[in-house]
């Protein structure tokens, strides 16, 4: 299988504090990779490095074939990012947000128009095109934020707790979108606190105190830790 992210002996220190302690792992093209860990385990630090927003203290990292030290701009063009906290501009309309992101990623106006029409139709949001983000239901915002994050057809999309707070039906519909993206060959790198969602990932890594304690398919992890679900696996590792 083709590797889309390779991480070798990644270390990140803040003063005397080691946030990422010698991480080594690969992510394969088209897989849904769950990146789990307790609050403060070092997930956000690692994601920021993978997105080219922060430099490691040491170690070797390649994302979409590009070097994390020298080619961060190329990395940024080839990835998408969505977080629960920040994803869309609340005081811009739906169409304005799409235009803004398309512009940032250098998509031509012609292609943008085509894709926008297609996207709004798929999301059943044509009637909301000129509405401000601020007034939309949270479930809509999340669907749109995800679609905007992959609008430039990146190789990898990073999702940082994308489903926090939404109702159970919307949460599952969001995962339908994730599956679809993965089926289209986009690699999905996702963090979540919902342990049932860990089961939906192809492989899952679990971090604790800066280290990756376990990395495997949900099936294998449950076997190894003699647990009936991922919640139990997580509690055994992170407690």
């Amino acid at each position: 299988m083709e590797k889309i992210i390779t991480v070798n002996n990644l270390v990140k220190k803040f003063g005397s504090f080691t946030a990422n302690d010698n991480l080594t792992f690969d992510v394969y093209k088209g897989e849904i990779f769950g990146f789990l860990g307790a609050n403060g385990a070092g997930k956000t630090t690692a994601i920021r490095i993978l997105c080219g927003l922060s430099s490691p203290t040491s170690g070797e990292v390649k994302v979409a074939g590009f070097d994390i030290y020298r080619e961060t701009e190329k990395i940024k063009k080839n990835i998408g990012y969505m977080s629960q906290k920040f994803s869309l501009y609340e005081d811009l309309t739906v169409a304005e947000n799409i235009r803004l992101y398309a512009g940032i990623y250098g998509i031509s106006p012609k292609k943008r128009k085509e894709k926008m029409a297609e996207l709004l139709q798929k999301l059943e949001m044509e009637s909301a095109k000129n509405k401000l983000i601020a007034g939309l239901p949270l479930g809509w915002k999340q669907k749109l934020a995800f679609s905007v994050a992959i609008f430039h057809e990146p190789k990898i999309v990073f999702l940082d707790e994308p489903t926090g707070g939404v109702d159970p039906v919307t949460r599952r519909k969001f995962w339908d979108l994730i599956y679809e993206a993965a089926n289209n060959g986009i690699t999905v790198f996702v963090t979540t606190h919902y342990m049932d969602e860990a089961e939906y990932c192809d492989r899952v890594s679990i971090m604790n105190a800066g280290k990756i304690e376990a990395l495997d398919t949900p099936e294998e992890l449950k076997k190894r830790y003699n647990a009936k679900n991922m919640d139990e696996v997580f509690l055994k590792i992170a407690r």
Binding site: A41, H193, L235, A238
Partner: peptide
């Protein structure tokens, strides 16, 4: 417990 990991929630 929103946004809190499974261990801390417990």
């Amino acid at each position: 417990t929103t946004g809190v990991d499974a261990v801390s929630r417990k």
